[in-house]
Design a protein around this nucleic acid. Structure first.
Lengths: 180, 180, 180, 180
DNA sequence: AATGAATGAGAGTTCATTCAT
DNA sequence: AATGAATGAACTCTCATTCAT
């Protein structure tokens, strides 16, 4: 009693979870299917190859992330909201960042993936840049800095305490000139 | 007539290169052995399991990275030297950062690896912290910020131009209060 | 609005074509269905199993071939007409002989198929025998010879030039005592 | 305690037997390995792909067949000896002809195989042609006729009695002008 | 110290077949 | 009469690991 759309989605989500948990290394079609409660052959009915399934995961992750990029208010408010939104997202959906880390790394070897990931990163960076355009400082440099820092904080397992991380994020806000 | 030490080293280096090139996903003991010109069984003579070989790679990468952490001069000079050193290292040995990215991601699922990686990161962060202790600002926060940013820049494939990256690095230096 | 009979026929023809093209090895129910433009499940509605479909193909091929076995005129004329008819058929419907080759080979392992193929071959041979009954020579031997040669020429990919093949056919005619 | 050469050979022979018994359709790497008493992985150690194994089978079959093509004596004697040799071979190694039938059919779809099979067939036909060169008749035509007939008789399951087949062979000998 | 040969376990993928609708 | 969705069983192939030599 499940329509095709949601079954596809369920498979993508299961794969997404497994990549978050075990990395690309540990992604097994059989286990993805099992998590959804279907036969492997059913998975292949929806996704002819493992790569196609991964593509689905990439799409899902990117969509998920992009949904955090829109905002209202003054640039400074938007910037603050974006950072706050990321913090919330990281708490609510840590897998998203784990998966994005995997995707980012894979981009180094997989041009197709690089293209997709780059698109989203570019949008992200452009958004940040536009929010800092009036600051009278080098918006490009700051946007690049911000993206790098946020990737470092959220996509790679942090080795410091959450408090330190939060303080670092505040230092970033100050650098970016977010009014408080 | 190759002594055991250097054969071990050669195997580690080959694995290291292959991880940099293809990620953990693409690491094959057979190809590591082939690159060194020995049989797979020989590899297993030196490293009983694949995990043992990976451990060797981790050790190598960490040693390699730590060698950049010592410096002389005033704190500010040392900080500047460290950042410059990283830039040089990234140009000379890009694989090192590719591998460190892989290791960092794997840490999320592999406690043993997490321990080792954490050690090095902690040393790194402590070093940075000590270099900013006199700045009259929150050294912990700034050190955390710096580590996150540098990881983001060097360990994850950068999507921006080298120029932007360099400008971002300069912005980081300013934030850290490096005298120029 | 297609009636059951012709849909069955269409499926058989598609399978027939695919066997001719790719052999039994390459026969896929899904592709047969696709060629006809229906779902695989529909194919199985008409032919419960793949074997049933193949049986249909066998029937079609045998019917097609038998239609060349009737003739009028003197025995010698009929014999000549038969050989000429085969030549024409091989030009017009090369798949028929490709399929018959497949069927003949499969007969070696599949008793059911052997039975059907044998029936047709027996009729063929009996026809030839009767046409040579008056020749004063061993009609059985000559009929057997003729069938073997014609199978060799038409059912197995010929490695010689068409000219040579035609010359060989003429030599066969002479052996069989066909007046010219 | 088995050297590599003979293990390869054993695998080829097992595959050869299975093709003879079940056709290409029924060739399964696992069963080939099982027949030899090794793991499938071992089979793949010797033959990286199934196609490589088949290539081995083709080589074996062709070598086996070619070994029947040499003879001594007058042309007429050699011809008679060749036909007698085939008869003996068919009795001793019926699988050889079954396999050759499979190969011949597959040639129609597989250019690589066609090349190899053609080579052998060409040698065969050339040999026959040379043996009939002095007969004052069209040696090309007769050689083509002979090859076709022999293929028909030996490579496709015969539907007639052995006696009839022998009589047909005698008729062929007469046609070819073999002195008795 | 080094290897060729072998393997168990499992990977992704395919396919004829079934079933609810 | 026809289908989309699902499946079990099997397929070829891969890989880290082992072992006799």
């Amino acid at each position: 009693m499940i329509d095709a759309r949601s079954r596809r989605q369920a498979l993508v989500l299961a794969a997404y979870r497994q990549i978050a948990e075990r990395g690309f290394e540990g992604l097994r079609t059989r286990e993805v299917a099992a998590e959804v409660g279907v036969n492997v052959a059913t998975l292949h009915y929806y996704f002819p190859t493992k790569e196609a399934l991964i593509k689905g995961v990439v799409g899902h992750a990117m969509t998920r992330f992009r949904s955090t990029l829109t905002g209202v208010g003054t640039p400074s408010e938007q910037l603050a909201a974006h950072l706050k939104g990321l913090r919330k997202l990281a708490r609510a959906e840590p897998e998203l960042f784990a998966v994005m880390g995997e995707l980012a790394l894979r981009s180094a070897r997989d041009p197709a993936m690089a293209g997709i990931v780059r698109q989203t990163t570019d949008v992200w960076q452009a958004t940040l840049r536009s929010l800092m355009a009036d600051s009278g400082r080098d918006a490009d440099a700051l946007a690049t800095l911000a993206v790098a820092t946020l990737k470092g904080i959220y996509m790679l397992p942090t080795t410091t305490s959450p408090e330190n991380r939060d303080k670092a994020l505040k230092a970033l806000e100050m650098t970016l000139g977010v009014a408080r």
